[in-house]
């Protein structure tokens, strides 16, 4: 796996990763009213980290992410589940959407809602699960390579 990352790929990745992550956030928030949303945004984000993984290795990707993808998975699932509850507290059915548009200084009117929380949850779940799988595969590969080298 280490041999895969060429200099060009590494340099490009350093530039592309922040862009991809920013773009994923953009797609996530844009999904509010326009095409986009948590699932596709999560995939875009995961693409960024996966690219980094190809350029460098699993260990560095893990330390770059800072958190274990499983934690993201758990938090996302929790957020998505919880987002159904506020509606029931107000006496509506489960997963009834609630909208809340406070006006903040500098930002102007901000649309907050339970679907947004749900979407953020989906984003985290997708990012977390894709990264769990990719890191597991890459980790296994690297371990296999190490053992062949040591033989």
């Amino acid at each position: 796996m280490t041999a895969m990352g060429s200099l060009i790929l590494r340099t490009a990745t350093r530039l592309l990763l922040p862009l991809l992550l920013l773009f994923s956030l953009f797609v996530l928030l844009r999904g509010h009213d326009e095409p986009g949303g948590g699932f596709i945004a999560g995939l875009v984000g995961a693409t960024g980290f996966a690219l980094y993984l190809f350029a460098f290795d699993a260990e560095r990707t893990r330390s770059l992410m800072g958190v274990d993808p499983r934690l993201l998975l758990g938090l996302g699932l929790f957020a998505a589940t919880v987002s159904g509850l506020p509606g029931t507290l107000l006496g509506h059915a489960f997963y009834t959407s609630l909208w809340w548009t406070p006006t903040l200084p500098l930002l102007g009117e901000v649309k907050l809602s339970t679907p947004l929380l749900f979407d953020i949850g989906v984003y985290l779940v997708v990012l977390g699960s894709v990264m769990t799988i990719v890191l597991a595969l890459a980790g296994a590969e690297e371990k296999a390579e190490e053992t062949t080298w040591n033989r």
Partner: peptide, 24 residues
């Protein structure tokens, strides 16, 4: 509307996601 029909689905999801958060 009643929540009890959804509770058997919500509870495992909550418990599952929390145990993922506490994976360590």
């Amino acid at each position: 509307m009643s929540l009890e029909v959804a509770l058997p689905i919500i509870i495992p999801f909550l418990a599952g996601s929390l145990s993922l958060v506490f994976y360590r």
